[in-house]
Every structure is written in structure tokens, then in C-alpha cells.
């Protein structure tokens, strides 16, 4: 009599444990791949709700629209991996756009203007890096200040007016494509691939992760945390300069407008990508997928005729959900 229930219980035990274990495994799996799963879910939902969503034309448009955010997310991912944050990233992009526009309207060619745009943006990164790494100013404060400075400079330099840019090269950049992939998203993909390589296959990338993980230990092993931090902010700002080019190409003008949405979305994309804001945990693909997800979300809502006012709300909700999910990531 006592034997059967006992043996039954022992055979039952793993049954009761199995789903629980699977559940835990599932949660961490969800957390690790929040961005990819979210993106797939969004695509499924939107393609049901709107027949236009999964058309080649819309996919192509979405990918082009995502390019700027992808680049900014990669830039932000580098900074966040060192445990910092770059709040000036979209203002830097704006200043880079104005730098490009001024150079263009001064009659310098496309190539020189591009270089000037990127260098203008990189200057902000240099200031960020020096303030944070050498000046020991908190990253939050330093980049908040340069956000304001770069925004102000962009307004002053452009006199607050958009600078029209009629460049055939820029036009080709926005309209050209290989298959459904427009040049902007190809550029973004190349940047993403290079960023992945730098982060995971070079000494510099390893040092970025080490400084973000534990800067004291990194320094004890002979790594210059100061140099790594400065370089990281420089890279981020330089990438913002590249994004500026796409921004000018998209609008057809260098606008000194404040692009706060890009700043918030770049951070949101990194968080969606499963990168911890405390630093040390590098991811490149995750933030890129995060950027694609946010773009798909905005695009889908627009297709469904949802008011633009609801889009920041939707982004906010998605980011909060992602942030909650990251709690279940494997340590």
C-alpha cells in the first residue's frame, strides 16, 4: 500500500518540475531574445491587421526609415557597453547635418562636405570623451550639457533655418537600392557588421567590454580606461555624423531641428537589444534588431491609421516591457 503512492510521487516529481524548469528556461530565453521575438510578433500582428504592411514596397520603406536609428543604436551600444550613456547623440547628428549643409552651401563638394559633417560631429564626441574620461564628469551630466551646446551651435550656425541641399549624390543615396535594400540600410548594415567585428574580434573591443565590466580591473591589467572611453565617445559621435548624412539625404535639407525622438529611440533600441545599462555586456545585433523593431512599430501604427500622438506611448510601453524582461536574463 505505501509503496505505490511513494513510487508514484517519485515519478510524478520530475513531471511537476519539468514545466517549471522549462518555464524558467523560456523566460530567460525570452529575455535574451526580446528584440527578435518582439520584432517577429509585431510583424505577424501588423501583417494581419494591415495588408499593406508586408508588401515589398513597405518593407523597403521601413528598412530605409530604420537606417538612421540602426546607426545611432550601434553608436549608443558602444557607449553603453563602457557603462556610460550619450544623451547628446541626436544633437550631435543635428550639428553634423548643419556642418554638412554649411559646407555644401559654401560650394564645397559632396565628399568634402561629408568629411566636414562627420568631423563636426566627432568634435562633440571628443568633448564628451575628454569631459567624462579626463574631467571625471558624470556621463549623464556631460552629455546633457553637450546636448544643449550642440543644439545651440546648430541653431546659431544655421541661423535657425534649414539649409537646402540639392546634391545628386545625396539623392542617389536615398533612392538607390539593391533589391529591396536601399543604400541607407546597406550603409547601416555595413556599419553594424564592422561594429560587431570591432567589438568582438579586436583588442579595442575587448578593452571596451573590460572597462565597462570593471574599470579597476581593466586598469590593473594595463588598459587605459581614459583612452578607451575617449575613443568610444569619438566613435559614437562619428557614427552620429554618418547618420547626419542620411538625415540630410532624407529631408533634402540640413535642419537644425531638435531630434529628441532619435535620442530616446537609440537608448530604447539598446535596451530592447538586451544590453545592460550598467555596462560590460556588449551586444551589437540586439540593438540593431531593437532599432528595426521600433521602426516597424511606428510604421505599423501609421499604416493602421493610429494617430502619431500614440507612437511615443507605444514605444514607451514596449521599452518598459523589454526592461522588465531583461530581469530574467541569464546572469
Amino acid at each position: 500500500m505505501p509503496t505505490p503512492p511513494g513510487s508514484r510521487a517519485s515519478t510524478k516529481a520530475p513531471h511537476r518540475m519539468a514545466p517549471m524548469l522549462a518555464n524558467i528556461r523560456e523566460l530567460s530565453f525570452w529575455a535574451e531574445n526580446a528584440a527578435s521575438i518582439g520584432l517577429v510578433a509585431l510583424v505577424i500582428v501588423f501583417s494581419f491587421l494591415s495588408p499593406a504592411f508586408l508588401t515589398l514596397g513597405n518593407i523597403r520603406a521601413m528598412l530605409i526609415a530604420a537606417a538612421i536609428l540602426v546607426i545611432l543604436a550601434v553608436a549608443q551600444a558602444f557607449v553603453i557597453t563602457t557603462g556610460g550613456i550619450d544623451l547628446s547623440i541626436s544633437a550631435t547628428m543635428t550639428l553634423g547635418a548643419v556642418g554638412f549643409g554649411l559646407s555644401w552651401s559654401a560650394g564645397r563638394g559632396f565628399v568634402i562636405s561629408t568629411v566636414i559633417g562627420i568631423l563636426t560631429a566627432a568634435l562633440v564626441g571628443l568633448v564628451n570623451g575628454l569631459l567624462i574620461a579626463r574631467g571625471k564628469v558624470t556621463d549623464f551630466i556631460a552629455t546633457l550639457a553637450t546636448l544643449s551646446v550642440a543644439t545651440g551651435l546648430a541653431l546659431i550656425l544655421s541661423d535657425g533655418k534649414p539649409i537646402a541641399v540639392n546634391s545628386s549624390q545625396l539623392l542617389r543615396l536615398t533612392t538607390g537600392s539593391i533589391g529591396i535594400f536601399g543604400y541607407p540600410i546597406i550603409l547601416a548594415a555595413v556599419i553594424g557588421a564592422v561594429a560587431w567585428f570591432v567589438m568582438f574580434r579586436t583588442r579595442f573591443g575587448l578593452h571596451v567590454q573590460a572597462v565597462g565590466g570593471n574599470d579597476e580591473s581593466a586598469i590593473a591589467n594595463g588598459i587605459s580606461a581614459v583612452r578607451v572611453r575617449i575613443a568610444t565617445y569619438l566613435i559614437a559621435a562619428g557614427l552620429a555624423g554618418v547618420a547626419a548624412l542620411l538625415l540630410v539625404a532624407r529631408i533634402g535639407a540640413a535642419e537644425p531641428a531638435i531630434n529628441t525622438q532619435y535620442l530616446l529611440n537609440s537608448i530604447a533600441a539598446v535596451v530592447l537589444g538586451g544590453v545592460s545599462l550598467t555596462g560590460g555586456k556588449a551586444k551589437i545585433v540586439g540593438p540593431i534588431v531593437g532599432a528595426l523593431l521600433l521602426t516597424a512599430l511606428t510604421n505599423g501604427l501609421t499604416l493602421l491609421g493610429v494617430s502619431q500622438f500614440y507612437q511615443p506611448l507605444a514605444v514607451g510601453i514596449v521599452v518598459v516591457l523589454a526592461a522588465l524582461l531583461t530581469r530574467f536574463q541569464k546572469k
Binding site: L206, H207, G213, N214, S217, A218, N221
Partner: peptide
């Protein structure tokens, strides 16, 4: 550095 693998720590710097 806790977030890095053993081999990465081994050769850090």
C-alpha cells in the same frame, strides 16, 4: 572582469 570569459581575462591587456 566578471562579464568576460576566463580566456579573455587571462590575456587582458
Amino acid at each position: 572582469v566578471e562579464e568576460l570569459a576566463v580566456w579573455q581575462n587571462f590575456f587582458l591587456g
